[in-house]
Design a binder for these strands. Structure first.
Lengths: 236, 236
DNA sequence: GTGGCAGCACTTGTATGTAAGCAGCGTCGA
DNA sequence: TCGACGCTGCTTACATACAAGTGCTGCCAC
């Protein structure tokens, strides 16, 4: 099956840039010249440009015609929007949890949680497991495909979370909450599962808000002006 | 190609194509050659190609490398996904309705409903008003910005609705439901508003399902094969 | 020193050229 | 008759050339 080849140059460039933006390797405000990126990635401007357009639609990049392209600042409003959307979707999915859960999927979720408990877990690996866990919760109710929309909308939220966890180092608590939620689902106690999930997502959000109050400069809202070219400390 | 407009060619082409796909002026399966479109729109292939990539990300167009680009068939799974997402978002918004509603926004919504009652309402105009109404409901709770994500996700749903309304001609009932919902919100009766909205959205969905059973060929799910080139009756 | 202006360097937007792959069709051989 | 095979014309993917606008920079007049 020749599906739109995942190996196309554009796909590679897009995924590379997206990852770098989300992991803050490309920090908010960073300049993204089509020419520079093309040269450094060893491709022409075309796939780079097409990737920047896609990232622009996602809100992760701002393109100023004839001026330049820049990684967008973390926008508190967009973070709140994404939080609202994901909470709405993940909670609504619980309404459609079937009587008997898919055993294979359940095993997958348990294995995932096991890995979250691994000692010395890398931060990026944790995020990966966290994503997979929440996606799995949606799949339990047959709404796994809605996850891609959530993912596309929550770029700003993810960057904010990374900023927060860099500062608080408190991912252990989130892992505990994951266990509690899954246990409630398995026990068929949906009200508890709902409450637990809502509290979990809200806790993440509150964490972000704390970070925002502590380091407001990271969250300066995008008002349409071109970012000033200064370096900002992103972590440490 | 002189554009006195500050809107880029790409934006114009993108919006034109998107509108034509959603209104079924470009029916599912239609071929979208970059060259042909560029010639007929009076631009080069570049903005056309970039627009097709964006529409591809939205799922409205399928691009087969080295083969061709086609308007995607209405995919029942994607319709269901969009229905789930919009219902989740619109219902969750009701949780955040403020005590006192924004008077200007309320007046806007009432004026909108008034127009929905206009005699001999054009179908496309109705869809426009419907969109605006639901967006307005979100804005009442301060979650207006989440609408754009819903819009981006519900392309397949919109096409399915158009197919359904062409066959049933029953938009009057939906207008009544709009009134009922808004009245409940204004009265502060959120449980009724929630129930009414859910029933409303489900009714739309059921309507689509009826159409699907009647005309399954319009909904053939996209399995990765290139559409066969045959003409299908889209309405009438 | 300072204000103003011209020009340059660099940006994205658009157009076009080149590469490479699939599909359909006609031909040719058995 | 029928199947294999290569040609041909189309497609998108990628590279590059050109256009047009922006903002910095440094020179120059005062």
């Amino acid at each position: 099956m020749r599906e739109a080849s995942n190996r196309s140059n554009r796909r590679v460039v897009y995924e590379t840039l997206r990852r770098k933006v989300l992991t803050l390797e490309l920090p908010p405000g960073a300049s993204l010249s089509e020419n520079e990126l093309a040269a450094s990635l060893g491709v022409s401007r075309t796939p780079v440009r097409e990737s920047l357009i896609l990232l622009g639609e996602e809100g992760l990049v701002r393109v100023f015609p004839k001026v330049g392209s820049f990684v967008s600042r973390v926008d508190a409003e967009r973070v709140a929007d994404a939080q609202f959307l994901r909470e709405a979707v993940e909670l609504a999915a619980f309404d459609d949890i079937p009587e008997t859960l898919d055993p294979g999927l359940l095993a997958e979720l348990r294995a995932n949680l096991e890995q979250q408990r691994a000692p010395g877990l890398d931060l990026e690996k944790f995020f990966e497991l966290d994503e997979s866990f929440h996606h799995g919760l949606l799949r339990l109710s047959g709404h796994g495909r809605a996850w891609s929309t959530v993912v596309a909308a929550k770029g700003h939220l993810d960057r904010a979370r990374r900023l927060g966890l860099h500062e608080t180092n408190g991912m252990g608590r989130f892992v505990d909450e994951h266990h509690t939620i899954l246990d409630a689902v398995v026990a068929g106690d949906l009200p508890s599962a709902r409450a637990g999930l809502r509290a979990h997502l809200r806790a993440v959000f509150d964490d972000i808000e704390k970070t925002r109050r502590r380091s407001p400069e990271l969250f300066a809202s995008d008002d349409g002006s071109v970012p000033v070219r200064r370096s900002i400390a992103v972590w440490e």
